[in-house]
Computed example of a mutant assay.
Amino acid sequence: MEIPQELITALEVPALELTALQGVNGVGLGLREENQEFFDELAVRVYVDDATDVPELPSQIADLPVYVVEFPIEPLFTPDTSRHDPLMGGAQIEQAPMAAGTLGAVVLRNDDNTLAGLTCHHVSGDTGFRVFQPTAPPMPIGSTPDLTDSLGQVSAFDSPVTQTIPTPAGGRLWLGRQVDSAIVALDEAAQQGRTFSNEITDGFGPVAQTLAPALKMFVRKRGSQTGPTGGLIVGMAPAVWWRSGSPPVGHLYVMANQYEIFFNPVDCPDGIFSRGGDSGSVVQQAGTHNAVGLLWGGVPHGGRRAVMSDITIVEQRLNVTLAWAFS
């Protein structure tokens, strides 16, 4: 389903104004939904914490009907203990104890042809932070950490934290980006004798190419917590509240032009598409090895819905390539 750019543009300011309301997490465009059944009709989707406590909303925006979707969106991170060698996509990583996520893929840096680990900024932390796989060792103040499982330090990131010019809407100042992403150097892992693969574990194989996601596309991902699961892209959101970091006083962080995934029961036996610890997972188009997204948000305790960024934008912002091979 094609969504006209003028419609996306028309929704940008109203989306921010509604997202500023108490209990609203974001506003997007997508399929009309009633009782978790989807219809081939375009609608404005308003994501809320609690469907029984919804602020007053307009019945239409940009001549489209408004529907409420209960989806308390938060960044997904939590610890795990699996170790991968060779290192490949889908592995659990930690920046510090009790702050873990998923290594989406080993990627190629375009500026120097070196390898790096791709994940989310809210998982890795800022430039210079050290990331471990599978878990971070105890790091008492003043001590030297054990680097046996260290991958290296964060070399670059892009997220709402890096935005400096705010957009005023709904009485707030919004700092927004289209991605929550980071790359981690792998030099310390190489020094420990670890090897690297362009594959994603659980038989997902190497990424063949990257494509922009689209509404009604079936997708799959391999997360460090839920393993392989699949779903359907049911919405794209011009504004989704990003609950991470500490924005300046009077400001809020927002993710622009994100994509909402709803679980496919056939691919999710326990009814869960993602949970805490899956942030950073590369999302592929089902039935292919084409990467389309980078998962960053959902329901921490496990849920049927998740949110991802466009992987082609991630590549552009970080200047990396997912589909690589050394001869």
Rank of each mutant, 00 (worst) to 15 (best):
G176I: 02
G223Y: 05
G223H: 06
R304Y: 11
I8M: 12
V179C: 05
V68M: 07
K216M: 11
I61W: 06
T19N: 03
P86L: 09
V46S: 01
A136T: 04
V161W: 15
S159K: 00
R177C: 09
D278W: 04
L76F: 08
A239M: 04
P137I: 07
L108S: 08
L18G: 11
K216H: 10
E33F: 06
G223L: 02
I165T: 15
L16F: 08
T148Y: 10
W174T: 00
E33W: 10
P79D: 08
W242P: 01
A136H: 04
P247N: 03
V207N: 08
E37P: 05
S181D: 07
A99E: 14
L64Q: 02
F218A: 15
P166E: 01
D53T: 13
L151R: 08
P55R: 06
F263C: 11
I8S: 10
P72R: 12
D180F: 03
A15F: 03
G193N: 09
S327L: 12
L29C: 00
G128H: 06
Q22I: 10
P213Y: 01
F77A: 12
D270L: 09
V69Y: 03
G235L: 00
A208C: 08
L7A: 02
A10F: 05
V219G: 00
G176R: 05
P134M: 12
I261Y: 03
G26H: 02
N290D: 15
G203M: 04
N35Y: 11
V13P: 04
D278N: 06
D112G: 05
L151Q: 05
T127W: 08
V240Q: 09
A43M: 02
E74S: 14
P269D: 01
G205H: 11
A190W: 11
S143W: 06
P160C: 02
P86N: 11
P65Y: 06
N25E: 10
H121E: 05
D85L: 12
A51F: 08
P14E: 04
D149C: 12
D50Q: 07
L232R: 11
T135R: 08
S159I: 00
A239G: 01
A286Y: 10
C120K: 01
G276C: 06
T114Q: 11
G302Y: 14
P140D: 04
S281A: 15
M88L: 15
Y253L: 04
A91K: 05
F196I: 07
A182M: 01
P265V: 05
P55E: 03
V179A: 03
S279P: 03
H289V: 11
Q178D: 13
T162F: 05
E12I: 10
T167S: 04
P4I: 00
L118I: 02
F38Y: 14
Q133G: 02
L115W: 00
P238C: 01
D126Y: 12
P79S: 14
L31A: 04
D278Q: 05
F204L: 13
G142E: 01
